[in-house]
Deep mutational scan, measured.
Amino acid sequence: MDALKSAGRALIRSPSLAKQSWGGGGRHRKLPENWTDTRETLLEGMLFSLKYLGMTLVEQPKGEELSAAAIKRIVATAKASGKKLQKVTLKVSPRGIILTDNLTNQLIENVSIYRISYCTADKMHDKVFAYIAQSQHNQSLECHAFLCTKRKMAQAVTLTVAQAFKVAFEFWQVSKEEKEKRDKASQEGGDVLGARQDCTPPLKSLVATGNLLDLEETAKAPLSTVSANTTNMDEVPRPQALSGSSVVWELDDGLDEAFSRLAQSRTNPQVLDTGLTAQDMHYAQCLSPVDWDKPDSSGTEQDDLFSF
Rank of each mutant, 00 (worst) to 15 (best):
K204C: 09
C143E: 14
D252E: 05
V226P: 05
D37L: 12
K294M: 00
L103K: 00
T120D: 11
E65D: 15
Q20P: 12
D37F: 02
K152S: 10
N110H: 01
S14E: 10
G24E: 06
A156D: 12
E109C: 14
E178A: 01
Q302H: 00
S298E: 06
L50M: 12
T36V: 09
S224N: 01
V226I: 11
A130K: 14
D273G: 04
A164G: 00
R73A: 09
D293P: 12
H125P: 06
E142Q: 10
T158F: 01
R95A: 00
L99C: 10
V236H: 01
G26E: 11
A208H: 01
Q279T: 02
N138F: 11
I97C: 13
K51F: 03
S49N: 10
D234L: 10
G54W: 04
R95P: 14
S186M: 03
M233A: 06
M281G: 06
S6N: 10
K181W: 15
K62F: 06
L255I: 08
K5Y: 03
A80N: 12
Q86T: 04
L223V: 12
S227G: 02
A278D: 09
A263M: 00
C199V: 03
A168C: 12
I71K: 05
T225F: 07
L159M: 10
L287M: 11
G96M: 02
A221W: 07
Q139S: 14
A70I: 05
F259S: 02
A18C: 04
S298W: 05
S49Y: 07
Y131C: 03
S14R: 15
Q163C: 02
A3Q: 09
E64I: 02
S186A: 08
R27W: 08
L99P: 14
Q264P: 01
P61H: 08
K72D: 15
V92F: 14
K123Y: 12
A156K: 11
A284F: 00
L57A: 08
N110A: 00
G210K: 00
A76P: 11
M233Q: 14
K72A: 06
Q285S: 00
V75E: 09
D256F: 04
A69W: 14
K91Q: 14
T230V: 06
F306V: 00
A228C: 09
Q270P: 02
A133K: 00
Q197V: 07
P239Q: 12
P32H: 15
F169C: 01
T200C: 04
K79V: 13
E301W: 04
G190T: 06
E64C: 12
D291S: 00
I108D: 13
G54Y: 05
K123G: 15
R261S: 02
A195C: 04
L193C: 07
E40N: 15
V111A: 14
L17K: 13
W22G: 02
N138R: 15
C199K: 13
S245M: 15
L43Q: 08
F165R: 01
T36M: 11
A164M: 01
H137R: 15
D303V: 07
M281S: 01
L53M: 11
Q187D: 03
R196V: 06
D122R: 12
L206I: 09
